[in-house]
Amino acid sequence: MRCLMLALLTAASQSVAQVPDSGRWQELRFPAGAVELRAEDNYIEQTVSLAAAGRLDRDRALLARVKRIANGLVRAAVALKPDAAAWPWEVHVTDDPAIEAESQAGGKLLVGGSFVARLALDDGELAILLAHEIAHIIAEHSREALSEALLDSRRDLPLEVVEERLASDFPLQLRMSKLSAIQEREADQLGMLIAHQAGWPCAAMLRFYAKLASDSTAPSLLASHPAAVSRLNLAKGMSRLLDE
Results as ranks from 00 to 15, higher is better:
A227V: 06
L6P: 00
S22G: 05
Y209R: 08
A227H: 13
L179A: 12
R2E: 15
Q104G: 15
R240Y: 05
V16Q: 15
R75D: 15
K81N: 15
L234C: 05
E100D: 15
Q197K: 14
E148Y: 10
S224C: 12
G112D: 01
A149G: 11
N42S: 13
A204E: 06
I44H: 12
E27N: 12
A135V: 01
M192D: 05
V74S: 06
M176V: 00
A228Q: 01
E184P: 08
V66I: 08
L9K: 06
N71M: 06
L172K: 04
V19H: 00
E90C: 14
L119S: 00
E244N: 02
R143F: 07
H92S: 04
D57A: 03
S22I: 04
L206R: 07
V116N: 11
R75M: 09
I69V: 11
Q46F: 07
N71F: 05
Q183V: 01
A52Q: 10
L129H: 01
V16F: 09
H225A: 02
M192F: 04
S224Q: 12
S214I: 04
P82Y: 11
E133C: 06
A218I: 14
D243N: 13
L179Q: 11
D83L: 09
V35F: 01
L37G: 05
A98G: 15
L179G: 03
H141M: 07
D122T: 08
A32P: 06
R2K: 09
A203H: 07
M238G: 03
S13F: 04
P201N: 14
K178H: 07
R154H: 10
P20D: 10
H196L: 05
Q14P: 13
M1G: 14
S168P: 02
S103D: 13
L157R: 09
F170W: 13
S13V: 04
A32T: 13
Y43P: 03
L174A: 01
I128H: 04
S220M: 03
S216E: 13
